[in-house]
Amino acid sequence: MGKTRAENHVIITGSTGMVGEGVLIQCLNSPEIDSVLVINRKSCGYVHPKLKEIIHQNFFDFSPIENELSGYNACFFCLGITSVGASEATYFEMTYTLTMHVAEILSRLNNKMTFCYVSGSGTNVNGRLNWQKVKGKTENDLMKLPFEQVFNLRPGFIKPIKGQKFAHKFYKYVNWMFPVGRRFFPNGFCKMTELGDAMINTLSHNNERKVLEGRDIIELAGEPL
Rank of each mutant, 00 (worst) to 15 (best):
N8A: 07
I11R: 01
G14H: 05
S15D: 09
M18A: 14
L24F: 04
I25P: 00
I25H: 11
N29D: 15
S30L: 07
E32S: 14
S35W: 10
V36L: 09
V36P: 01
V36Q: 00
N40L: 02
R41I: 11
K42R: 15
C44G: 08
Y46P: 01
H48Y: 12
Q57N: 15
N58D: 15
F59A: 06
D61C: 13
F62C: 12
S63L: 09
I65C: 13
L69A: 13
S70R: 15
F76H: 02
C78V: 02
L79G: 01
L79C: 04
L79F: 08
G80Y: 03
T82H: 08
A89C: 13
T90Y: 10
Y91A: 05
F92T: 15
E93Y: 08
T95W: 05
T95Y: 03
T97I: 12
H101A: 05
H101C: 07
A103V: 01
I105W: 07
S107G: 08
L109P: 01
L109K: 15
N110D: 03
T114H: 14
T114E: 02
Y117P: 00
G120A: 14
R128Q: 11
N130P: 07
W131N: 00
K133C: 07
G136I: 01
K137T: 12
K137F: 10
N140R: 11
K144D: 06
K144L: 12
P146T: 07
P146C: 08
Q149H: 10
V150T: 08
F151D: 00
N152V: 07
P155R: 03
G156P: 01
G156H: 05
F157I: 05
I158M: 03
P160K: 03
K162V: 12
F170M: 12
F170D: 13
F170K: 09
K172P: 02
K172G: 11
K172S: 13
N175W: 11
R182Y: 08
F184E: 04
F184M: 08
F185K: 10
P186L: 05
N187W: 04
N187H: 14
E194N: 04
L195F: 05
I200Q: 00
S204N: 11
N206V: 10
N207T: 12
E208K: 13
E213R: 06
R215Y: 07
E219M: 09
A221K: 02
A221D: 03
A221E: 02
P224L: 08
